[in-house]
Write a protein that binds this DNA or RNA. Structure first.
Lengths: 204, 204
DNA sequence: GTCTATACGGTGATAGAC
DNA sequence: GTCTATCACCGTATAGAC
């Protein structure tokens, strides 16, 4: 997917992303990363001193490329609020559909190690919930939507976007008799369904 | 929490639940389970032949004690639909609050191994989404609620209940400045907030 | 920078005494 | 049933040649 003649360090990181994100820290073997990068195992330690450091690089990538894109849709946005919600939901579901393992990876690792290990990454990711809260409050004050706790609205919306992705194996089996196409169709239609669900709930 | 003089097999399973559910299959060491059970490592293999088998017992427990309780609230229920939703959401959030690691455990493992490994457990868990779909359809046909795809409504509702639990480390840091009490309060109020959010969205 | 060889501590699993 | 001792293997990490 990237350039053919990338340097070794980059090749390692790309391979590490694939393995770590799919298998998690505990499930990842340095040997597998080396194989996938087409280099020797000890080269991993030459570029990244330890497994932990390599993992850290992968986690940082995963988190910073996911969290901020979401919230930043909101900041500096001139759409009316319902249009904003439709764009947000559609874009977010699209992102997680294209990177289905990343949410599970982030949530799994953060739950295992606790936020303390990642608090630097999390804080430096540029997430600014206040901008979101402010926008909601403005809409409420203007009488455009029903009163609601902005945090609740945010978690509701993100939860509805992410859960069907991380719950895929169960959802596909239980709801769609393990039919992959039915599941994909279901997910695709959520881009509109979730937005309308949210809008219906808060509109006056 | 259980009887003092439980037999060894039971002690092992209890210890295994704690470790597996908190650390996942890859992160679990047989030694840790033995220590927690207060017995020797080789006794684990005497009662459960392998780590895989022991894991299987834990997963089966976790899944069967979680999934069905949810859906069965719906079956054979005589409440009006909005009361049903309020009960469902409140009970479900209460369950996951009391067992916060189980959703992450189930989702993590199912995503890692794929549903094929657990398809027996999943299918034998007694989940019956059709009963739920039928109930929704009845409400729509009766004109009590707006038309909506029952699957979408189900995933929306469950997603809003589970996501704040598995996303806790991030949510607590980003939204509540790592204030534990604020997070708990937020979760507690969701028992009502989520139900009203759903009801607002589907009521006519 | 990249390789081979190896150290060193675990890890699941088994054998065998009691 | 429960223990100790031990096995065969695998994991990360390092040393050192080229």
């Amino acid at each position: 997917m990237s350039a053919e003649k990338e340097n070794t360090e980059e090749k390692i990181l790309e391979a590490a992303k694939e393995v770590f994100i799919e298998k998690g820290n505990d499930g990842t073997r340095m040997q597998e990363i080396a194989d996938k990068a087409g280099i020797n195992k000890s080269l991993l330690h030459y570029y990244y001193r330890s497994k932990e450091k390599l993992f850290g690089a992968v986690f940082k990538f995963a988190f910073t490329h996911f969290a901020p894109n979401i919230i930043n849709i909101i900041t500096d946005n001139n759409d009316d609020f319902f249009t904003l919600i439709r764009k947000f939901v559609s874009l977010y579901i699209d992102i997680v559909m294209k990177n289905p393992f990343i949410p599970m990876f982030i949530l799994g690792e953060v739950n295992k190690k606790g936020p303390s290990t990642f608090v630097n990454v999390i804080k430096s990711a540029g997430i600014n919930p206040q901008a979101f809260r402010d926008r909601i409050q403005k809409e409420i004050d203007s009488g455009n939507i029903k009163p609601i706790d902005p945090n609740q609205l945010l978690i509701n919306t993100i939860g509805m976007c992410i859960f069907p992705i991380i719950g895929r194996p169960i959802i596909q089996v239980v709801l769609f008799d393990d039919n992959k196409l039915e599941y994909i169709k279901f997910l695709e239609s959520r881009k509109k369904e979730v937005a309308e669900f949210v809008i219906n709930s808060i509109k006056k």
